[in-house]
Design a protein around this nucleic acid. Sequence first.
RNA 1: GGGCGCGUAGCUUAGCGGUAGAGCACUACCUCGACACGGUAGGGGUCACAGGUUCAAUCCCUGUCGCGCCCACCA
Length: 890
Amino acid sequence: MLEKTFNPAEVEAKHYARWEQGGYFACNPDSKAAPFTIMMPPPNVTGSLHMGHALTFTLQDVLVRYERMRGRDVLWQPGTDHAGIATQMVVERQLAEKGIVLQRLGARANLQTIGRAAFVEKVWEWKRESGGTIIRQLRRLGASADWARERFTMDEGLSQAVRKVFVDLHRQGLIYRDQRLVNWDPKLHTAISDLEVEAREVKGHLWHLRYPIDGEEGRYIVVATTRPETMLGDTAVAVHPDDARYKDLISKNVRLPLVGRLIPIVADEHADPATGSGAVKITPAHDFNDFEVGRRHGLSMINIFDADARLNDNVPTAYRGLSREEARKRVVADLEAAGLIDKVESHQLTMPYGDRSGVVIEPWLTDQWYVNAAKLAEPAIAAVETGRTRFVPEQWTATYFQWMRNIQPWCISRQLWWGHQVPAWYGPDGEIFVAMDEAEAAAAAARHYGKATVLKRDEDVLDTWFSSALWPFSTLGWPEKTRELARYYPGDVLVTGFDIIFFWVARMMMMGLHFMGEVPFGTVYIHALVRDEFGHKMSKSKGNIIDPLELIDKYGCDAVRFTLAALAAPGRDVKLAASRVEGYRNFATKLWNAARFCQVNGCLPDPAFDPSRCRQQVNRWAVGRIVDLARRVDQALAEFKFNEAAHALYHGVWGEFCDWYLEFAKPIIAGADADAIVETRAAVAWALGQLLHLLHPFMPFITEELWQQVLDGKTPLIVAAWPSYDPNLTDRAATAELDWIVQLVSEIRAVRAEMNVPPAAQLPATLGDAGPEAEARLANHGELVCRLARLTEIKPGGSAAGAVQVVVEGATVMLSLAGHVDVDKERARLSKEIDRVAGEAGKIERKLANSDFVAKAPPEVVQDQRERLAEAGAAHAKLSSALQRLASFR
RNA sequence: GGGCGCGUAGCUUAGCGGUAGAGCACUACCUCGACACGGUAGGGGUCACAGGUUCAAUCCCUGUCGCGCCCACCA
């Protein structure tokens, strides 16, 4: 006997262990079934499960379980990402707490510092101890990934793939080394890519500086800047070639204040006559625009910052060693003192911040490795244009194109220690040897130099996303030609959030197409962000974070999963409130109790039961409802409408199975007809079983538990066959008849409540104005109606005396309310109903009277309106005669 | 500066050419042998606003107002 309520914790642990031990999560390359592949977006090893993870992995698990039940050979490839910067920061912080500093941060070697090899070993140590957290948490979510195939982006195999991709792209000229401005993070001491820079609006100032024209005493050119400290690195002033104000100054020089350097005034279209003074200072080494201007005019590039963004020795002594902020104050003060500040204005500007470090990014001139992304993007754009990969919802296609068509070179080198070290070696003269390993590089160097030469390996590591971009094939064994690679690439669906379309999706497309010659996945399903119930982004600082594990502990995993699925309407953010989870916890309890009813009433599966052969109409009706539900779930999932599938299931279980079918079944089971009892018990058990199947992808634990404990399921539900029916299973007559009974019972109940009849009162009822169909239906189900509507009897020969009259399609039911009915109130109620029906009929009549409508609307719509008018007319007639009958009473 | 999305019941929202649905909250009644994490019934919506297209608009188009996000080097 089941407990009174569902106790999730115990059941979750039990079934998860059994599933995993049973090998049900594993793919089977030998299978004859069609494969179904989902590549799990590898969470950061440093991570712990947040709501975004819970959403994305729930949706993936729903798809995976669904396809597994449909008989596909499912591979859900799991793993974690080494998350270069994030992990490096975590371990650095831990070491710092012990007073240990990395030598890479400029510290000198001593007892308190640690070198590269030792640090990397520390990170692996950390990974062994703490890196499994997120995977354990994923298991608590019920994720049925193929854990035996778990991969890590720093695994030997995956590292090999990274090296090969680097070497191949380099050989093809698609990876190259270049000196240009990069986004330099002065806190982390590394270059970062454009995508890792976050533009923030900040309030600042616009300083208008006077630069004295050389050789023209007392004449100045005014330039405006938001960063006065960079003037120390100026190497020109630019004006627009057509700007009349400055024409005579072009190719003259200015004497750079504070520095004394002579710098030219150049003509360049970059200077906008309409902005500021129309003249702009040029600092090629510290501004992306100025860099271009500098290149065009062959200006020297003076780097004034060190790696910490402090001023270096290229500035006058007074400023050396100052931070950017200190330097700004000093420069402004000194210019002020020299009378060289024309004016200062408040100014709103966008500043670049490092998304991980949170400090202002400095454009800095360095040598880095770049990927020619524009070239790789071409086939990736074409693949989406031709529909080989499609985005769901479709609107993300535009986002993808917009970015891909304007893609910039991808800076892939990072000045960190944790990550894939760049497979490049340098000779004494700077010659570069890119190779799979040191031996290969040495051999190449020997050929190049004609003798063995000592090489130095590139210190940098690669952007984490470089290895993630290979995930769809590197996890399958590439570059080896494995069976898995042949079978599971390309994947079917990629499920992920919009925030990593550029970081990850686009790059997998590029790499997959380049190295595999085929897109990595056919469909990209993009879901939205999880926000709090008010629509705010969850963040630690706001303190509005909802921890999925706490929710799981409190309400059960099934409730959390179902909530996320039910709220995951395509293209909409998920606004999560605990009350929703509570509601779906209640739903799980409702299902539990329905199963308990089955258990108590002997509703067990009967091998002889055939849903197409039911003799009881209520059972035929129930079969039809299940068939319809399965159809709706299939369709919703085919379109990734998880919310629609969840709502259909909720209503099917609660609104149909519990509210009506079990109530229909009760009198039969308690009755005397032995055949009917046998059939109904079996039918109820069958229907429950079907519901458990349909619900399993969303609520795996409770369904598995009930399947095994109540329905004696021998095959675990996780690998049971997904329901699929002959459409002829639906008995339309039975459906119509029982739907009518539902309507009748609802109407009677409503009237009873409206008339304040005590719920417990059993009343006799009679039938009037009934057509043959209604009479037949009541002959079949009269007792049922009596039971559900609390009537003592319902027989022909209606009398309106002391009765309320309930009008339904095809009949009027007179409820004898001796003592309860108030004739005036009943008259008012009927009049109101008549008005309502008349109003509706009037509306339809006007529509049908419109010749344009009849001529232009589709025939079925016109027909439908005619039918509705007829129904309204019939109801009107019945209600009118009901009112008429009342006239004979006071 | 470009691009995308969203304004539907008190809250969260589904629907997206032809009767506006749901969950929570709310009201009344109900210990009826599965379930009070429950049952039965009920109230509550000029579908942001203004034009247009159409026989017909919450749904399509245009504009206005209000929110949000993404991309972008404007001094």
